[in-house]
Design a protein around this nucleic acid. Structure first.
Lengths: 359, 359
DNA sequence: TGCTGGTTTTGAATCGATCCAATCATGTGG
DNA sequence: CCACATGATTGGATCGATTCAAAACCAGCA
């Protein structure tokens, strides 16, 4: 019942076992960190003491402060954490990021929060050597927060192009979209519709080229520019092409198709700004007995694995997702301050969702 | 060129800005941690100094040591990190773990390594408050390592039942397997085959009941026990039921089916110990023009979402994956030392991969 | 002026390790 | 028997913050 010896058990520290083994804390530390430099007899004595006192090995918390490096990279998003495991694009990207981390022995910390104060705190207190930021929506605030930490970071998806100071990795959206459109025009299509990604945090519904030009998210804007540049080239009147802004989910995509196919002149070709949109569209078309690619052709964007096994398999613009992940990890770990923005090439992969125009 | 003023810039510390602002480090700390208790004038001065010197806010590394709690849980596996994003079961589990973490504001650290020394180090140096261990294969070593850290931890999947001291969350494999078998016997099936999960780290190939009884992984063993108990109950000679041990991938499952259907008396019902096995089996059967459930019925185990959209949709034993994740996170965060092992109930979900016996 | 009560600010102690220059011990060659 | 190289051990300094008891400050009042 002595005031100090009773009470809750404090976890054992390195210093405790050093004292118990009758050596200095320096030596005790060496037993764990560089066992070869301490005499066998002493080493055994210290290890025995550690065992006896239930010491769990040097606490990384302590080591961390001294070492400076966490050896883990943070992956941040404004979505809930489960986004990383549910969204197809995120999953492929994460798989490639984790491969790169495995290769270098770095760990991964998932950072997120749906609500805002939480998010700020999570970013501010994340124990990481750098951030990879998923800029899907509302990315700018995330980037701002990450940058405030003054840690190396890269944004994935060159979303907010207003700020050239942020390091970012993305793809050439304009060229990719051009590829998709050209593929369809070469198949003879003349009547198009666009299922767009979000332009801002607003919601979904029909929109116009002018609206999209003002879009908050440059990815959306650039893909539309790519589409339209190519369509204009073959004298299609882009002002007549319906554009429907979705939020990348089933509900908004289906609403978009309801809207698009309600018109008098229905399209024979659909340009979808993401594979997820395209896959939802495929479901809608099947349910409405519109055959693909017989009646309507559709081309996606991203190149997620689901596209390869859908019915029919999806023609799409594939992003070099694995390469992007690898580069992002490399940029964080070998951060030499020189990295800035980088735009990777994309590829058209023709599968069975596109075919000659019916007319 | 003075020896101290030149050279590489050291990151700014809280103490630096305290000095610059002419206050003590204690006050400077308060400016960030409890702004309301410091006089406005001082607060602004400190903030201005921080801004001017490019201070990124209090470094979590420092805070951590004092605070003691990391506020993150580690999820460990012996597989490569990408396992978390590629394996269907792991993904669903992770999604539910991450939801639970989101709700409490905890972060997630992914810990892994394919090779062994790396793994040990990764576990030993992970900055986490506790571990959730995925015991798929080679789980015992992982559990050992995790336990050595003397942190709270739970094993998912009650794999190594030899050791009752480890906290674990799993399902009643015997009852679940029984449910699967009974469902098929009630449909009139008499000729069975079993596609098993791994028994040990060995490889794959045909095996026997006696072998499985000695299995390293109790999950595999218990599921077989559940199957056979039920089959015996309706007087099926289980010694004649072929068992093929797979490694849960396409190659081994297909090899298993090649083997099973090479025999004279082919089964009308297949018991698959995982949905992943069942889904690969579905592919094999389709390629061999064996209709499901016309010629052969199949029942899986796990309840992954892919099973609901396969062709045909998979009859399976669903595990309460979400509940398991929630419980695991709770066990770590509210660790009061009382938690031990917990076995959750499973459900039979009948879909279209099972039907009456053809004969 | 001295005292009281309240709000701010200070600075030493702490968290748990690692690092490194100095010290101590031991053995070898001259 | 001393000088010196080699190897093992020590203990103070450090990493970057937070905490809290004590001191300082200030205003109001007798």
């Amino acid at each position: 019942m002595a005031p100090l010896s009773s009470g809750k058990t404090r976890p054992v520290r390195l210093a405790d076992i050093a004292k118990a083994a009758g050596v200095s804390h320096g030596t005790a530390s060496n037993v764990f960190a560089r066992p070869e430099i301490v005499r066998e007899e002493v080493r055994e004595r210290v290890k025995a003491a550690a065992e006896a006192m239930g010491y769990g090995g040097p606490d990384p918390k302590g080591r961390l402060l001294r070492a400076g490096k966490v050896n883990a990279i943070g992956v941040a998003t404004a979505e809930p954490l489960s986004y990383f495991f549910n969204d197809p694009f995120a999953r492929v990207m994460m798989a490639s990021i984790s491969q790169a981390c495995d290769a270098t022995g770095a760990g991964i910390s998932l950072v997120s929060a749906a609500n805002n104060e939480q998010l700020a705190w999570n970013i501010q207190s994340a124990l990481v050597d750098g951030f990879i930021v998923f800029c899907i929506e509302g990315g700018s605030r995330l980037v701002e927060l990450a940058r405030e930490r003054k840690l190396p970071f890269v944004a994935l998806d060159l979303d907010s192009d207003d700020d050239d100071a942020v390091a970012a990795i993305g793809v050439d959206n304009i060229a990719g979209a051009g590829l998709a459109a050209r593929h369809l025009t070469e198949l003879g299509h003349r009547r198009f519709a666009v299922l767009a990604l979000p332009c801002a945090d607003a919601g979904f519904g029909p929109t116009t080229q002018a609206q999209v030009e003002k879009a908050l998210y440059s990815g959306t804007r650039d893909r539309l520019r790519g589409y339209f540049a190519e369509l204009s080239r073959v004298d299609i009147d882009v002002s007549k092409v319906p554009i429907y802004e979705t939020v990348n989910d089933e509900e908004s995509v289906w609403a978009g198709l309801d809207h698009i196919f309600a018109g008098a002149e229905t399209p024979t070709a659909i340009l979808a700004m993401s594979d997820r949109i395209a896959l939802h569209a495929l479901d809608w078309l099947r349910q409405h007995d519109i055959t693909v690619p017989g009646d309507v052709s559709i081309v996606g964007f991203d190149g997620v694995p689901e596209g390869a096994v859908s019915k029919p398999p999806l023609t799409t613009i594939v992003q070099p997702i694995a390469e992007m992940g690898r580069l992002a990890v490399k940029a964080i770990l070998e951060n030499d301050g020189t990295f800035s923005r980088q735009s990777l090439p994309v590829d058209l992969v023709v599968r069975a969702s596109s075919g000659p125009s019916p007319a």
